[in-house]
């Protein structure tokens, strides 16, 4: 009986200890990345190359998704607003939803699955094929040479992608609302300009996207660096990157929203 009880308690304790250990390692890893960031700034070529792979190559999916999300918001928003006779508020609805929530969050989720997974797989494979060990042999710090540029590229790309997502979405809402349905273009833009605040809405959306950029990038490089050096390990790490960063984005979004938009 006591044996059985002990086994149960141990089974509960094991994942807790493992999680704490991983969290601690992850935090120390973040500190190490920041500490070794000097190389990234002294050799911007390293970061620019990574911005190309994480940011520029994510452009297509971000722009197309943004356009479609905006168009769907236009259709759904019009359908709901017209019941209250408030269809001229369509621009406000589309722009506030995109700037405050959908832009940063959906762009972050897409970024995590498009770029985060690629970063994890790349670093994981470098580890599995002992390229990282080889670098260390040559007295090149792999954190400074491989990890930090990818981290900073992610942090840099994410706000740009989120802004593009929101801008495309608003254009999509405009196309559906004004061009297809026939809401008046003047009220669409003027209501939007009257209700959207530069600091509260655009600014806070930007802050959110920077926070998500940091979170996704550090999770991606950490999972890659921490991956067991096998084919199976790398695939598992890639999956974990997408799952963890999606959950972290949604959790952080709730916390940030609670602080930013409590209603003045």
């Amino acid at each position: 009986m006591l044996d059985w009880l002990e086994k149960r308690v141990r089974r509960l304790g094991e994942p807790v200890v493992n999680t704490m250990e991983k969290l601690g390692f992850g935090f120390r890893f973040l500190m190490a990345v920041l500490w070794h960031s000097g190389t990234s700034f002294r050799r911007p070529g390293l970061v620019i190359r990574e911005v190309f792979f994480t940011g520029v190559l994510s452009l297509v999916i971000i722009l197309v998704s943004g356009l479609f999300v905006g168009m769907v918001l236009g259709l759904q928003g019009y359908d709901t607003l017209v019941r209250f006779g408030a269809s001229e508020a369509l621009g406000v609805l589309v722009s506030l939803s995109l700037l405050r929530e959908l832009g940063p969050v959906v762009a972050g989720l897409l970024f995590a699955s498009r770029a985060g997974s690629a970063i994890t797989a790349e670093i994981g494979m470098m580890k599995a094929t002992e390229q990282l060990a080889a670098m260390e042999m040559m007295a090149v710090n792999p954190v400074a040479r491989v990890v930090a540029p990818r981290f900073w590229a992610g942090v840099l790309s994410m706000p740009i992608l989120a802004a593009l997502f929101s801008a495309m979405g608003i254009l999509g809402g405009y196309v559906v609302g004004v061009v297809l349905i026939g809401v008046d273009a003047g009220t669409f833009w003027s209501q939007m300009q009257a209700q959207v605040d530069l600091f509260n809405d655009v600014g806070n959306g930007l802050v959110k996207s920077v926070v998500f950029g940091v979170a996704v990038s550090i999770i991606a490089v950490f999972e890659g660096f921490d991956a067991p050096p096998t084919a199976e390990g790398v695939s598992g790490a890639t999956t974990r990157t997408v799952v963890t960063s999606s959950l972290v984005i949604l959790g952080l979004d709730f916390i940030l929203t609670a602080f930013m938009f409590r209603g003045i």
Partner: peptide
């Protein structure tokens, strides 16, 4: 790489400028 990343950053700045000038009301500041 430099060309494409430059283009990417220009696009991002343009999107932010669009959001700041066309979508929101600057004079609210």
């Amino acid at each position: 790489y430099d060309f494409w990343v430059g283009l990417f950053v220009i696009l991002g700045v343009a999107a932010l400028a669009f959001l700041a000038l066309r979508v929101s009301n600057v004079s609210n500041g």
